[in-house]
C-alpha cells in the first residue's frame, strides 16, 4: 500500500456506497471509516467488511475513526479492544486514528453514545493518562474529537476548549475538530464558536469534520442527516482561516444520499478551503 500525503475533503465510507466506490473508483482524496465496523464481535475478526475495506484501501488513503474508545470512562481501558484496533491499523495503515473526547459507558455498562465529560482538573488528568496508555498500546498517536453535547455540569472548572488544550499539552495527541459539533454545542450551551476556535492550539488540529444537525425547539441535535448548515459553513471558514486547509470530512450517516450528492457537499467544503487560502495569500 502506497503511503500518500493526505489533503482535501474526504468522505465517510458507508456500506450503501461500497459497490459504487469499488466499481467506479470516484475521485475522492480519502475515506474515513468507523473502526468498530471492521473489528467484528468477540471471537470474530474483520470478515467480509474488512475484505471490502482492504480493497478500498488499495485505491484510497483511509482514516480510522472510532466510537468506542471511551477515553473518559472511569472503567478500565479495554485492552482487547485496543489490540483489535492496533491489528486493524496494522492491516489498513490509516493516515490517522481518531476517536471522541467523551465516555461511552461506566460501571460495566456500555451505552454506545458519546457522553459529555465534566471539564474539571480531575477529568483532564484522567483523560490525559488514558490517552498516553492508548497511544502506547496501539503504537501510534491519536487525535481526539470534540463531541456535540446536550448538557453541561455545574462543577465544570474550565471551558471545553481549555480542557482540550490542556489534554493536548499533556499528551501531544492531535485534535479532530468537528466544526458542526462546536456549533451544536455553542447553541445548546450559549458559547461563542469563534472563541472556541481561538482556544484550540493551531498545530494540534489534524483533521476537521463537517456534518448536518437537526433542530428541536431551538435545541440542536447532531444527527448527521442533513447538509452542512449555513452557520457551520461560516464557522468552517473561520476554522480554515485559523488552522489552514487541514483534511476535512463530510459526515452523513442517516438518510444517506447518493454518492454524487456527497461529492457535491465535499466540493463546497473544498471551495471554502480554496477561497480562504486564496484570500490569505
Amino acid at each position: 500500500m502506497q503511503k500518500r500525503a493526505v489533503s482535501g475533503v474526504g468522505l465517510g465510507l458507508r456500506s450503501v456506497h461500497y459497490d459504487h466506490v469499488l466499481s467506479r473508483r470516484p475521485a475522492v482524496p480519502w475515506f474515513e471509516v468507523i473502526s468498530e465496523n471492521f473489528m467484528g464481535p468477540r471471537g470474530g475478526s474483520g470478515g467480509r467488511p474488512l475484505e471490502v475495506l482492504a480493497k478500498v484501501r488499495r485505491e484510497y488513503p483511509v482514516a480510522l475513526h472510532g466510537v468506542s474508545l471511551s477515553i473518559g470512562s472511569t472503567d478500565p481501558l479495554d485492552f482487547d479492544y485496543l489490540k483489535k484496533l492496533e491489528s486493524l491499523a496494522s492491516v489498513i495503515e490509516p493516515w490517522i486514528v481518531t476517536d471522541h473526547l467523551c465516555w461511552t459507558g461506566a460501571h460495566g455498562k456500555n451505552l454506545h453514545d458519546l457522553l459529555p465529560l465534566p471539564y474539571t482538573e480531575e477529568a483532564a488528568r484522567h483523560v490525559a493518562g488514558r490517552i498516553e496508555k492508548v497511544q502506547d498500546a496501539i503504537g501510534r498517536s491519536i487525535a481526539i474529537e470534540n463531541v456535540s453535547s446536550y448538557l453541561s455540569y455545574k462543577h465544570d472548572e474550565m471551558a471545553e476548549w481549555e480542557f482540550i488544550a490542556r489534554i493536548v499539552k499533556t499528551t501531544g495527541c492531535g485534535v479532530l475538530l468537528d466544526v458542526n459539533n462546536i456549533h451544536v454545542s455553542a447553541i445548546n450551551h450559549g458559547f461563542d464558536g469563534e472563541e472556541y476556535l481561538a482556544g484550540i492550539p493551531v498545530a494540534a488540529v489534524r483533521q476537521m469534520h463537517l456534518a448536518g444537525y437537526s433542530e428541536e425547539n431551538g435545541f440542536l441535535i447532531d444527527t448527521h442527516d442533513h447538509p452542512v448548515s449555513d452557520p457551520v459553513w461560516k464557522l468552517y471558514a473561520a476554522a480554515v482561516r485559523r488552522f489552514g486547509a487541514v483534511p476535512t470530512l463530510i459526515e452523513w450517516d442517516e438518510h444517506i444520499p447518493s454518492f454524487a450528492r456527497l461529492q457535491k457537499e465535499a466540493a463546497k467544503a473544498k471551495e471554502v478551503q480554496d477561497g480562504v487560502c486564496a484570500a490569505a495569500v
Partner: peptide, 29 residues
Amino acid sequence: RWISELRPPSARDRLAVYSDAYFLRLLES
C-alpha cells in the same frame, strides 16, 4: 443535582436527550 440549568432547556430535558437516544440506538442496531 450536577446538571447545569443556566439556560433552558431544563436538566430533565437535557438528560432525556441521552435517555431517548440510548434505547433507540440499540433497538436500531
